[in-house]
Design a binder for these strands. Structure first.
Lengths: 345, 345
DNA sequence: CTGAAAGCGCTTACAG
DNA sequence: CTGAAAGCGCTTACAG
C-alpha cells in the first residue's frame, strides 16, 4: 500500500540489524533480546546463549538513538572547556575521555573561549543531547548562569556557576612551594600571583603566603613581596624584571610564581639581567607543563593529579562508586628540578 | 489501566515539552509543528507564526534522540585524534569544533593513543552514535583497518586507512623553507627529517630536498646532508649535536627540521656547543607551535592553516558547499623570525 | 521465566 | 496548505 515507504524500509534493512532480526534468528521475542542485552539475569541461560549467539552471528549493534528515546539518556558525557588548545585543558580532556570510555561513555567537547555567553550556549547545546552528565571548566570571568537541569553537572579546575567543584587543593599545593623554598633557606622571597579576580589566583597566593608567614614568624631578615599579574609568560617576565632590577642586597633570593608560564617568563628575565638560576636566584612555577622540563634549568613546579581529578569528575556525574556530587579537592605533588637551590650566603 | 505508567509519563511531562504540547498551544497538528521546525516553507505564514510563538512560549526544545531515531542521524561529528594533549591536534580539534558548531553540530572526541587497535575501537564507538560524519587523524603506525559504513569519513593531517585526506601540502610547504634558506645564501645545509615510515616525514623531506637540489643545480660548494630522526625534541638535539660537532669549515650553515620540536632541540644543541644562532647557524622548524615564539631566538617556522583544514574537513563530511569527499591539500605560510639569517661569509 | 504490546517524540508520504 | 497516522528501534510493566 505504501510502496515507496516499503522500499525505503527494506533499503535500510540491508544495512541495519534490529532487535527484531535478532529475535527471529534466536527464536525468541524482542523483549527477551532486550533483556539479555541489558544483562537482565531473569532470562534463562539457554535462551540467553541463543540470543548472544544470534547477536554475534548478525553483528547486531543496538540503535543508540532508539535506546535514548526510551530511556531519555545517551551514554555520553559533555565537557566544556575555555580553550582546548590550552595544554592544561587538553591534558584534562584526555584523562576525562579515557575515564569516560572505561564506563562506556563518549565525550562531547565544546569550547567556551572564556566567554560566559558562549559558555552558556555551549552548556545548553550539550545538555540538549541528553548526556548522562556534564563537566565544565568555568570561564575566568565568573559569569553566574544558573543552569537548571536534572542532568548532573560538575565543575572542574575552575568553578562554573554554583556547581560543585573538583580541583586541585590549590592552597595546600601552593604551600608545598613555600615549604620547599623555606627549607632551602630562602628568607627574602617574591611571589608573582595570578589575577586576584580568579579563585585559583587567590587560593594559590593565600596558600603560599600564609604558609611562608607561618614558617618565618619571628625570624630575622624575612621579606615576602607579592606582585599581582596575569597567568601568562609576558606578565612573568615584566614583573620579574622589576623585582630583579634592585641591588642584589635587597632583591629576592627566590621567586615563586602562580603558573609555569610566569615562572618561565621570570627565568628569561633573570637570564637577560645576567642573574644565574639557581645559583643567584631560585624560581618555582606551578602546573608542571611540558615546557617546564624543556627550559634550562628545568623548572621546579607543582604537578596536578589530572588523572585523579578526571576520575572523580566522571564518577561524580555518572554516580559511580559512591563518589558524591560535591566539592572535592585533590592534593598535588611538588616536583623539584634544577631551578631551585639554596641561596648563596 | 496502567496507573504506574501514567504517573511515569506525567512526571516526565512536567519537565519535557513535546511537539504535541506545542501543537495544542498553537492549535495545529503535530505534523505542522514539525514542518515549521524543519523550515518547510509550504506552511502558511499565519500558522508558522503561531507555531513559532508557541515554541517560544513553552520554551520547547526538540528531543534529539527522537529525531535521530526517525532520521537515523544525529547532528554530531566524530573526531578521533592520536592524542588530544598534543598541542597541534588540540588546535585542530578547536577549529573543527568551531566549524562544526557553525553548522549546528556537536563534536565527539576520542583518542587513539597512536594505537591502531584502539583507533579501530574508537572509530567504531563514534560510528555507533550515528554521527553525520567522522574525521580522523590517523595513527603514526599506519594500521590498515577498512571501515565500512555509509557515514562519510575523512582523514586529516595523517591518512587513516584508505580514506580521503585533507592536509597541508607538505611538499610545497617544506619547499618554502628551502627557498628561504637558499635566498639567504645558504649552500651547506642539513635536513633533520621525520621518520620515513610516515607519509608526513617523507613528504616534508622530499619537498625540502627536491627544491633545494633544483635551486642549487650546477652551483659550487653545495652540500645537502639529510639525517633521519623522530619528530621530537630529543631527536633534534642529538642529531644536531652530531651535525655540529664538525669543524666550522665543513659544518652546515643552516639546519632545517621537519618539526619545531626537532628545531628547538637543535637550538639547544647549538647553544651548548657555543654556536650562535642565527649568526653562525640558521635553524628553521615546521608547525609554528606556541613554543616557537618563546624560544630565543624566536624560531622561523612553517605555519599550517588549521582553520582551512578544519573547514574543509567539516564541509566534506557534512557535504556542505559542494566540498567533495576527496584528497585536498592546503598551502601553508612561512613565518620568518630570528633564527634564520644570511650565513657569515 | 517469556511474550505481547504500549509507548518514547519525532518525521514524512499521503489523503483531503 | 493541513492533518491523521504510521513507523523509526528500543525498553518495560504487566499478563500469563
Amino acid at each position: 500500500m505504501y510502496p515507496l515507504l516499503q522500499r525505503h524500509i527494506s533499503e535500510r534493512r540491508t544495512v541495519l540489524t534490529t532487535v527484531k532480526d535478532v529475535a527471529r534468528q534466536a527464536g525468541v521475542s524482542v523483549g527477551t533480546v532486550s533483556k539479555v542485552l541489558s544483562k537482565d539475569l531473569t532470562v534463562k541461560v539457554a535462551l540467553r546463549d541463543r540470543v548472544t549467539q544470534a547477536v554475534a552471528d548478525l553483528g547486531y549493534k543496538p540503535n543508540l538513538a532508539a535506546r535514548a528515546l526510551r530511556t531519555s539518556k545517551m551514554d555520553m558525557v559533555g565537557l566544556v572547556v575555555p580553550d582546548i588548545s590550552n595544554p592544561f585543558f587538553a591534558q584534562l580532556a584526555k584523562q576525562i575521555e579515557a575515564e569516560a570510555a572505561k564506563h562506556g561513555h563518549v565525550v562531547m567537547l565544546a569550547n567556551s573561549d572564556d566567554d560566559p555567553a558562549a559558555e552558556a550556549r555551549q552548556v545548553q547545546t550539550l545538555l540538549d543531547q541528553s548526556p548522562r552528565g556534564l563537566i565544565v571548566v568555568g570561564c575566568a570571568s565568573e559569569g553566574v548562569s544558573p543552569i537548571k537541569t536534572d542532568i548532573p553537572v560538575v565543575s572542574v579546575d575552575r568553578r562554573y556557576g554554583a556547581h560543585d567543584l573538583i580541583a586541585t587543593h590549590n592552597r595546600a599545593a601552593s604551600a608545598l612551594v613555600a615549604d620547599h623554598l623555606f627549607d632551602l633557606g630562602h628568607r627574602r622571597v617574591a611571589y608573582i600571583s595570578g589575577p586576584q579576580t580568579t579563585e585559583v589566583g587567590r587560593l594559590r597566593q593565600a596558600g603560599f603566603c600564609d604558609r611562608f608567614n607561618v614558617l618565618t614568624a619571628g625570624l630575622q631578615g624575612v621579606d615576602l613581596h607579592v606582585v599581582e599579574g596575569q597567568f601568562d609568560y609576558a606578565s612573568g617576565e615584566t614583573l620579574a624584571r622589576n623585582l630583579l632590577g634592585a641591588a642584589s642586597a635587597i632583591r629576592p633570593t627566590a621567586i615563586a610564581a602562580a603558573s609555569d608560564q610566569q615562572a618561565i617568563g621570570a627565568l628569561c628575565a633573570a637570564r637577560d639581567l645576567g642573574i644565574q638560576v639557581p645559583t643567584m636566584l631560585s624560581i618555582a612555577g606551578f602546573d608542571d607543563i611540558d615546557l617546564a622540563r624543556l627550559v634550562v634549568p628545568r623548572l621546579t613546579s607543582v604537578c596536578q593529579r589530572l588523572d585523579q581529578i578526571a576520575l572523580l569528575a566522571v564518577h561524580a556525574v555518572l554516580g559511580l562508586n559512591g563518589v558524591p556530587l560535591a566539592d572535592q579537592f585533590v592534593s598535588a605533588d611538588l616536583v623539584v628540578r634544577g631551578s631551585t637551590a639554596a641561596p648563596k650566603t
